[in-house]
Each structure stands twice: as C-alpha cells, then as structure tokens.
Computed example of a mutant assay.
Amino acid sequence: MSLSQTAFLLATLTAGGGTMGYIRTGSIPSVAAGCTVGALYALGGYRIQQKQQYGVELALLASVVLAGSSIPRAIKTQKTLPIGLSLLAGFGLWTFGTAMSEGKNKVL
C-alpha cells in the first residue's frame, strides 16, 4: 500500500469514526476532532499523491494529534474505542515517521 493510500485510509477511518460517534451519542467534539484529523490525513495523502511538499509531514502531524488525544484516554479508561484510535495513531506514526526518516518526504 502506498503512502497516499495509507493516508486516505486513515482519513476515512478517523472522519468516519468521528461521524459515527456523533450519530451514536450526539457528541460534537467527536465529529469535530474526527473530521479535523481526517482532513489532515486527506490533505497529506493528496499532497503525497501529487508529489507536493509537506504531504508526509501533514500525515505525521495528524498521527501526532490523534495519538496525543487517544493514548492518554486509552490508558485512563481501558475502553475499546480509545485503544483502537491509539493503534491507528501508532500505525500512522510508524508509517509516516519511517517515511520521513528514509527521506520519502522529498519531492521528486
């Protein structure tokens, strides 16, 4: 799976998850956070796909934001949703962090 496809997948999962959180509980913070993080992933994926600068960095930023909000909740509550979000964030951190360290963020 390419970096752009990974970013688009994470965008779909986070935005979809935020929307589902709103539908199930009426939580406006869930939809706002999910769609914001999803938009960062989507923009990063688009920029990676178009070989523009800062695509990998945007996707990595989305992962940092997601990790920063979900990991403390996962540790505190031990609930399934924050743990799942933490796993998504960890996957994004690993994928886009590795891409940055290998220099795949350079525009060709």
Rank of each mutant, 00 (worst) to 15 (best):
M1Q: 12
S2K: 03
L3V: 05
S4K: 01
Q5L: 11
A7F: 10
A11E: 08
T12R: 11
L13D: 11
L13N: 08
G17A: 06
T19S: 11
M20A: 11
M20V: 13
M20Y: 14
M20Q: 08
Y22A: 06
P29A: 02
S30H: 09
A32D: 12
A33W: 01
G34C: 09
C35H: 05
C35G: 08
C35E: 03
T36E: 00
V37E: 01
L40Q: 04
Y41S: 10
L43N: 15
L43D: 12
G44C: 05
G45Q: 11
G45R: 05
G45C: 14
Y46N: 03
I48V: 12
Q49F: 11
K51D: 15
Q52K: 15
Y54N: 13
L58D: 03
L58Q: 02
A59Y: 06
L60A: 08
L60W: 08
S63N: 06
V64S: 11
V64M: 12
V65M: 11
V65W: 02
A67W: 02
G68I: 13
S69Y: 11
P72S: 09
R73Q: 13
A74K: 03
I75K: 11
T77R: 13
L81W: 09
I83E: 04
I83M: 08
I83F: 06
G84D: 07
G90N: 03
G92D: 04
L93D: 00
T95C: 08
T95N: 06
T95W: 00
T95G: 03
F96Y: 12
F96V: 04
G97T: 06
G97L: 04
A99W: 02
M100T: 06
M100H: 00
M100G: 03
S101A: 14
S101V: 08
S101K: 12
G103P: 05
G103H: 08
K104L: 07
N105R: 05
V107P: 13
L108T: 00
